[in-house]
Simulated scan of single mutants.
Amino acid sequence: MKVSVPATSANLGPGFDCLGLAISMKNQVIIRPSKFHSVSLKGEGANNPALKDNNMFISIFNDFYHNLSYKKRHFRFEFQNEIPLSRGLGSSSAVIVSAIASAYAIEGIKLEKDKLLNLALAYENHPDNITPAVMGGFNVACVQENEVRYINKAIPKNLKAVIVVPNRAISTQLSRKTLPFKYSKEDAVFNISHSSLLTAAFMAEDWEMLKHASFDQIHQKYRMKQMPELFDVQKTSLKEGALMSTLSGSGSTLFSMSYADDSKNLEKALKLRFPHFKVFTADFDNVGVRIEI
Rank of each mutant, 00 (worst) to 15 (best):
K2C: 08
A7F: 15
T8A: 04
A10S: 13
L12Q: 02
L12N: 05
K35F: 15
K35A: 13
S40Q: 07
E44S: 03
G45Y: 03
A46C: 09
A46H: 13
N47A: 10
N47K: 05
D53T: 02
F57C: 01
K71R: 11
Q80A: 03
E82T: 00
P84W: 08
R87M: 09
L89I: 05
G90H: 08
G90Q: 09
S92F: 14
A94E: 07
V95L: 09
I96E: 06
A101S: 13
S102P: 14
S102K: 03
A105W: 13
I106L: 15
I109C: 03
L111A: 06
L117T: 03
N118W: 12
A120N: 08
A120P: 12
Y123S: 00
I130P: 07
P132A: 00
V134M: 05
G137F: 13
F138W: 05
A141D: 07
E147H: 14
K153H: 11
A154Y: 10
N158M: 04
L159M: 08
V165Y: 15
V165H: 12
R168A: 05
R168Q: 12
A169C: 13
A169E: 15
S171C: 08
S171G: 06
L174C: 05
Y183F: 11
K185N: 08
E186A: 06
H194I: 00
S195L: 06
S195K: 10
T199L: 02
T199N: 11
E205R: 04
D206M: 02
L210M: 14
K211L: 00
D216A: 02
R223C: 12
M224I: 04
Q226V: 01
F231I: 00
T236E: 14
T236G: 04
A242N: 09
M244Y: 07
S245A: 15
S245I: 12
T246L: 06
G251D: 08
T253A: 14
M257R: 07
D261G: 00
N265P: 01
L272Q: 11
R273Q: 14
F277R: 01
F284H: 02
N286C: 04
N286Q: 14
V287K: 13
G288F: 13
V289S: 05
E292A: 01
I293P: 15
